[in-house]
């Protein structure tokens, strides 16, 4: 065996990666990440309750064809109606819809979402939905209804959801 070959084999055997500095870096990064980790991600849904508004400011704005959708979450069904300043009551009546509860007592939110999409495509400027749940409706169902009303996939439908109690 030549001397050159022997020398090359020795250098191959000695090549070993020094892991200690990498380990040191890991030991620094891991505690840092542990302090910044969050195991549950809290997000929020913005909403408001009806309040007395200053009508002077509203009248100065240019009028756009907007519908305000009203969704009543009742014990047996969901009733959808609309209101608008520039439309006749007869025109608004055509949007009225009743969604029966599903067999498992769940609200038909997919149907609601599809119907809201059709309203949005007709009146794209519309952005407000008033949600009126019955007193017995649980918070989880309200949040689900808000989700169905706010967006379809990633496109917004009615992002301004106003939560209101029923009158009477």
């Amino acid at each position: 065996m030549s001397i050159i070959t022997k020398g090359r084999r020795n250098s191959d055997d000695d090549t070993e990666l020094n892991m200690i500095p990498i380990m040191n870096i890991f030991l620094v990064i891991i505690p840092f990440l542990l302090t910044s980790v969050s195991f549950f991600h809290i997000k929020v849904i913005s909403t408001s309750v009806p309040v007395m508004a200053d009508s002077m400011h509203e009248s100065l704005k240019p009028k756009k064809m907007k519908l305000t959708v009203i969704v009543e979450m009742r014990q047996a069904d969901m009733r959808l109606s609309t209101t608008a300043e520039n439309l006749d009551p007869q025109e608004l009546e055509q949007f009225e819809q009743l969604f029966k509860l599903q067999a498992a007592g769940m609200y038909p939110l997919m149907e609601l979402n599809e119907y809201l999409q059709s309203i949005k495509s007709t009146y794209p400027e519309s952005d407000t939905l008033i949600l009126i749940p019955d007193e017995t409706v649980i918070y989880e169902s309200i949040i689900q209804a808000m989700d169905a009303a706010r967006n379809f996939n990633d496109s917004p439908l009615f992002p301004n959801v106003v939560l209101s109690g029923s009158l009477g």
């Binding site: 991600h41 809290i42 909403t47 408001s48 309750v49 309040v51 949040i143």
Partner: peptide
């Protein structure tokens, strides 16, 4: 309603992602 009466009509409902 009470919060709105006290001057806070806007809410953020906390939910889990």
């Amino acid at each position: 309603k009470i919060a709105a009466l006290a001057g806070y009509p806007n809410f953020q409902f906390a939910v889990l992602k």
